[in-house]
Amino acid sequence: MADAAPVRVVLAKLGLDGHDRGLKVVARMLRDGGMEVVYLGLRQTTASIIDAVEQEDADVVGISMLNAGHLTLGPLMVDALADAGLDVPVVIGGIVPDEDRPTLAAAGVAGVLGPGSPAAEVVACVQAAAARRGL
């Protein structure tokens, strides 16, 4: 039973936006990449995501947003996890202009996935983020 344990990822939409096409596609890509996706779905708050990360002992948090809120919500999620004492990397999915990537990286966001990212890139990005978390 002691095979390499699958990476556990919490996936959520942070905020009110209901466009979940990208999140669902990413969930399936990660599943097909051998990961376990704890899918929270729509309208989550930093508090509800933190509850899930803590109880699920997740390796990575993936949040998706479509409404240009990434500069507010991305760092908000990173800081909220840090405040809760959870050392879990955050990956953001959504429409993020290239020029914002350094800002998000500086704020502690572990990875950014744009629309149409290929499965291999999605899985590699989450794997790389998971590797940052020691166990």
Binding site: G15, L16, D17, G18, R43, T45, L66, N67, A68, G69, T72, L73, L76
Partner: peptide
């Protein structure tokens, strides 16, 4: 904007970062 579409006021905790954005 998204809070209005969801019937939430701009001062609702869900609205943070989304007021007037889209």
């Amino acid at each position: 904007d998204m809070p209005t579409l969801m019937g939430r006021d701009s001062d609702h905790s869900w609205a943070l970062g989304e007021v007037g954005r889209a």
